[in-house]
């Protein structure tokens, strides 16, 4: 499965939850598949999906899911020790690991070579790290959201992209709509 197929499959699971979605194609795909006020689309700032989602999870009680990418986690590896050492049960980090910088043309990342992001997360002190194959993600994600423990999911999948338009919504509108949903 490629990322867009995964997002289609998990859309019903994440629809009613606060989601922070990674820059580039992941946000464009989620926006096209199931735009919700509970989605925060990153239009830039590669690497910070996990940090933004984690700050949000620490600041309020609702479940938060950060949808991140392998390349983006690699660029902000310092996030994993911070998350591990300040764990909060309402937070789920979903790393869609297609082994490539998908949004820029599927250049390979080190996560598709010798580097295991799940091993890195574990070494950083994250306690519930689950590596899962794309087709098995749904139930794993659902139980991570339902559980009171913070979970890091590394979802291995194929690289590949679909053609789709950029998000033209104004960032302040995205942010305002999202903050209203956080308060609701």
């Amino acid at each position: 499965m490629i990322r867009s197929e995964i997002l289609k499959e998990i859309a019903p699971i994440i629809r009613d939850h606060l989601v922070v979605c990674n820059i580039g194609l992941p946000s464009q795909e989620l926006h096209m598949i199931d735009d919700q006020p509970t989605n925060f689309y990153m239009l830039g700032t590669m690497g910070l999906s996990s940090s933004i989602g984690f700050g949000l999870a620490l600041a309020q009680d609702k479940p938060v899911i950060s949808i991140d990418g392998d390349g983006s986690v690699l660029t902000n590896l310092g996030t994993l020790p911070t998350i591990a050492n300040n764990a909060t049960g309402n937070y789920t980090l979903l790393i869609i690991d297609n082994g490539s910088y998908g949004s820029t043309g599927d250049q390979p990342t080190y996560a598709g070579m010798k580097t295991s992001l799940s091993a890195v997360a574990t070494a950083c002190g994250c306690e519930n790290v689950i590596e899962v194959q794309d087709k098995d993600l749904g139930p794993v994600l659902q139980s991570a959201i339902d559980s009171d423990e913070m979970t890091i999911i590394v979802c291995k999948c194929d690289s590949g992209n679909i053609k789709l338009p950029v998000i033209t919504m104004d960032p302040v509108v995205i942010r305002h709509r999202f903050m209203e949903a956080v308060k609701a």
Binding site: F40, G47, L58, A59, T79
Partner: peptide
């Protein structure tokens, strides 16, 4: 919450702000 790099910290702050802090 100590952060490991300042841009990471600004990401945490952005999330906390949207969470009402």
């Amino acid at each position: 919450i100590p952060s490991n790099k300042e841009d990471e910290g600004m990401g945490l702050c952005a999330g906390a702000f949207m969470g009402g802090k």
